[in-house]
């Protein structure tokens, strides 16, 4: 009886693990194929063993993808575009997070007449499809003289991101007791002091969530990148598309794969290292300040 019971549990467990492992394999298989293909030379790829490990691993494809593959007429690899993306992502993420934090602080703790309406309107911004704002934004950018520039793309991402960052911070700050603000006001602290000394030190989890969210969104963006960038200011997603679509001679699958991994790597790294803070931050906001 007892032995049976243990056996029973083990059988159940085994089944669960089998299912989990098989799903994991299905999800990880493309990554594996990309990675192993990127380490093969073109001869080996042509021989057709998609799933086989590389016989003779080489970093040739990675080197080419990074510095000499052709993206359209230029053949400098992904490197310049990678740095374009970095130049877009960092300011855009930081500015939108700061603006969002301030917005959230005001909308949760310094309510004014119409602040709820403003918040509702901001929320609406989360649900506007990208395509709808393409044309008006293009006109705005040209009026500001920012067409085809990195600054222009930063501006677009900040505007589009503020809706989300405000939502994050506002909902997090709503959970922090308003009496803290009252106590601090009596202690003589002003608007900025209260934010700096009381709210900011409490905000680590939600800052991490916002940074990860914004980083991923902006790094992975293709539509804004392709519409609002010029020839020298394209982000890496656009360059990856160009690289894959440019073939001189035969198609170099290994270079394509390496390029795709390079383009995806930063977000992957962010998730691996900060993923647990992401989950923790999301739940921290939900429970208590």
């Amino acid at each position: 009886m007892n032995i049976n019971k243990i056996f029973h549990i083990n059988l159940g467990r085994t089944l669960i693990y089998l299912v989990l492992i098989s799903f994991a394999i299905i999800y990880l298989a493309p990554l594996y194929v990309m990675f192993s293909t990127s380490l093969k030379d073109i001869e080996e790829i042509r021989s057709g063993n998609l799933l086989a490990l590389p016989n003779d691993p080489t970093l040739y494809a990675w080197g080419k993808a990074w510095s000499s593959a052709c993206t359209g007429s230029e053949c400098n690899g992904l490197a310049p575009f990678f740095w374009n993306s970095v130049k877009i992502v960092f300011p855009a993420v930081i500015i939108s997070t700061i603006v969002g934090a301030f917005n959230g602080y005001v909308l949760s703790k310094w309510k004014f007449k119409g602040s709820e309406l403003l918040f509702g309107a901001l929320l609406f911004g989360c649900f506007i499809p990208f395509q709808v704002i393409l044309l008006p934004m293009a006109i705005l950018l040209s009026k500001l003289g920012l067409s085809n520039t990195v600054s222009g793309l930063v501006l677009v991402h900040v505007i589009y991101g503020v809706a989300f960052t405000t939502l994050f911070f506002r909902n997090y700050y709503v959970g922090i007791p308003t009496e803290l603000v009252r106590a601090a006001r009596l202690d003589g602290a002003g608007f900025i002091d209260i934010f700096r000394h009381i709210f900011l030190p409490l905000s680590t989890p939600i800052i991490v969530v916002t940074l990860i969210w914004q980083f991923t969104q902006i790094w992975n963006d293709f539509l804004f990148g392709v519409v609002y960038s010029g020839s020298g200011t394209q982000p890496i997603t656009v360059a990856l598309n160009n690289l894959v679509n440019t073939s001189i001679g035969g198609k170099e699958y290994n270079v394509d794969m390496a390029a795709a991994i390079i383009a995806a790597l930063p977000t992957l790294i962010v998730y691996v290292f900060a993923g647990k803070y992401f989950v923790r931050g999301l739940t921290a906001g939900a429970v208590k300040g």
Partner: peptide, 21 residues
């Protein structure tokens, strides 16, 4: 006058202690 200029201190029901300090 604003609270800080009234020179009055308050003890709150929830204490309202600054949690990170």
């Amino acid at each position: 006058k604003s609270p800080k200029d009234r020179d009055i201190a308050m003890v709150f029901q929830s204490y309202a202690l600054y949690p990170t300090m």
